[in-house]
């Protein structure tokens, strides 16, 4: 595909991201830098000092709302990305609602139970809408285990051997690897892959 056509397609794309933590903040920055024209990011949290080992925030943003801090960081990095933010918790039964109009949904949540509920609600509530999820982001090394799977509309990046974040560390390199892997799948869904 012509480079100009890739830029045009990305500029006209709308991606929704559930969560602005280790995965979501890095995915949002990657997609904005790649030229995605419109992002929707949903999160309820504030930046904590303990987030800075993996999340795309800065020391002077500790205490700020993640959605507001992330929007500022995106707009410091790129020009012309339209960033919509929802500061709020996704509530069971209506988790898919904010994502009705996006081209691709990204699952960037933390807790496994919330991940399952969100994926279920998107698959049921928004049939035909692609959703890109991640599982097994904790730990160090083991990059050879990371793989991507497709189950119809559900695309999953996973390390099947990884421990949960209660049992192992969450650090920028592996979390970032997953975030960029998810972002790369999003681009492929939006414009098609390179041969």
């Amino acid at each position: 595909m012509e480079k100009i056509e890739v830029s045009r397609k990305l500029e006209g794309s709308f991606v929704g991201i559930a969560g602005a933590g280790g995965l979501g903040s890095n995915i949002a920055m990657a997609l904005a830098r790649a030229g995605v024209g419109h992002l929707l990011i949903v999160d309820f949290d504030r930046v904590e000092a303990s987030n800075l080992n993996r999340q795309y925030f800065f020391l002077d943003q500790v205490g700020d709302l993640k959605v507001e801090a992330l929007k500022k960081n995106i707009l410091r990095a790129v020009d012309g990305c339209d960033v919509d933010m929802i500061n709020g918790k996704l509530v069971k039964g209506s988790m898919a609602d904010p994502f009705r109009d996006v081209d691709v949904v990204v699952e960037a949540l933390d807790d496994a139970s919330t991940k399952v509920s969100f994926i279920e609600e998107v698959l049921l509530g928004l049939p035909g809408k692609p959703i890109v999820a991640a599982s097994g982001v904790a730990g160090i090394g083991g990059s050879e285990r990371i793989r991507q799977r497709r189950y119809d509309d559900l695309y999953l990046v996973e390390d099947p051997k990884a421990l949960s974040s209660e049992e192992d560390v969450l650090l920028c390199p592996k979390v970032g690897q997953f975030a960029h892997h998810q972002a790369n799948i999003v681009l492929e869904l939006l414009v098609g892959g390179s041969e």
């Binding site: 933590g21 280790g22 933390d110 991940k115 599982s135 099947p160 949960s164 192992d168």
Partner: peptide, 10 residues
């Protein structure tokens, strides 16, 4: 049947 396991962390 596909059984897809989700692990905490994000």
């Amino acid at each position: 049947i596909d059984v897809i396991h989700l692990t905490s962390g994000g």
